[in-house]
């Protein structure tokens, strides 16, 4: 039974670029009716792409069902289906794409392939009312400073090696920390860092507007093994150094573009210390600071659904034969017709 208006149009979005499988449902007006996220959390080690994909396949029907239940609509109420087409891990992306294709063909509705990074920015704008921000998007897979200019989002800075979230995760794992649902590695490091206070010298690597975290990670792990410093101080120093680096490059991009808003998103955006640092530079440049609420900052289906709506309303439909996944699809490759 549905209490929704018959004229209302809905988009279902599937996100499966890495360790999350998520389904979101958005109206064409940008009201998010469902955003169900199932996280694959390996007992040990990092994300194994095939294992994560197996998780996605196993939970897909359950998550879809939950999304429909939450949104109080039926599959036949959908107008379009969107999916995360890249960038991401091949097996994970393919699982999501397969589900999306099946759904779109069965319901005979249009399919829309969405760029994962652009979706992060678009849902962030929708949720925070930002109009034209500099975005710092920091997660386990990406560390990007981007802003819109002439029909596309441009990458002003990014990591030259590993992502910021990855750096924190690997360090936490090496320190023997155990994450669980609701308490990921990043949150564990943040908690420990609050108890630290001694700043240990670690490599601070900023190149232009780009950053590098692999040297920082190696140095931190080496110090960890020497057991000269407390884990709390190491977590504190790792955070202070890494966050200062991304804040510095965000400020450079902000000064360069003179945008009036700063949007912080991605899984690492939940970190209060990072929020406070980015807020400082935003204020110094008279820009408004916005943090995306966690459920829309981590990988989520709602962002795919909403970006699918934007794309569809501007004529971007992905024919099934062109719906192959793009593992290294950069956000500046995508033309953005919905921003004038």
């Amino acid at each position: 039974m549905t209490k929704k208006k018959a004229s209302e149009q809905y988009c279902l979005g599937i996100e499966s670029t890495a360790d999350d499988f998520s389904v979101g449902i958005s109206t064409f007006e940008g009201e998010i009716l469902a955003n169900m996220i199932s996280v694959y959390m390996p007992e040990e080690g990092g994300i194994h792409p095939r294992e994560a994909a197996r998780h996605h396949a196993e939970v897909a029907s359950k998550v879809l069902e939950e999304a429909f239940t939450n949104a109080e609509i039926k599959p036949r109420n959908l107008s379009i289906v969107a999916f995360s087409q890249g960038p991401g891990l091949g097996p994970c992306l393919r699982t999501g794409a397969t589900v999306a294709r099946a759904l779109a063909s069965y319901l005979e509705i249009p399919l829309i392939g969405v760029n994962h990074c652009i979706a992060h920015i678009e849902i962030g704008k929708l949720q925070t009312d930002a109009k034209d921000p500099i975005t710092l998007y920091v997660s386990g897979g990406n560390s990007i400073v981007a802003a819109f200019d002439s029909r596309r989002y441009r990458v002003f800075g990014e990591t030259l090696d590993i992502a910021l979230g990855n750096c924190l995760d690997v360090f936490a794992r090496e320190a023997g920390l155990r994450q669980k649902v609701g308490l990921p590695f990043g949150a564990l490091v943040e908690k420990l860092a609050l108890k630290g206070g001694q700043l240990i010298a670690l490599p601070y690597t900023v190149k232009g507007m780009d950053t590098s975290f692999s040297g920082l990670l190696t140095a931190a792990v080496n110090l960890l093994k020497k057991r000269e410093y407390s884990l709390e101080d190491l977590c504190y120093s790792l955070q202070e150094t890494a966050f200062s680096m991304v804040t510095e490059v965000t400020e450079r991009a902000l000064a360069h573009t003179e945008k009036k808003e700063v949007l912080l998103t991605g899984g690492v955006a939940a970190n209060k210390r990072l929020q406070s640092m980015v807020k400082v530079i935003a204020e110094e440049h008279n820009a408004r600071f916005r943090t995306v609420p966690t459920q829309f900052a981590i990988d989520n289906g709602a962002m795919i659904a909403w970006t699918g709506v934007l794309a569809y309303q501007h004529g971007a439909v992905t024919p099934i034969e062109k719906s192959f996944v793009k593992l290294r699809w950069r956000l500046e490759e995508v033309e953005i017709p919905w921003i004038s």
Partner: peptide, 13 residues
């Protein structure tokens, strides 16, 4: 580099 590397171990001794 840098974008979506599935698994990366710290180069520790």
């Amino acid at each position: 580099r840098g974008r979506y590397i599935a698994e990366r171990k710290a180069k520790s001794e």
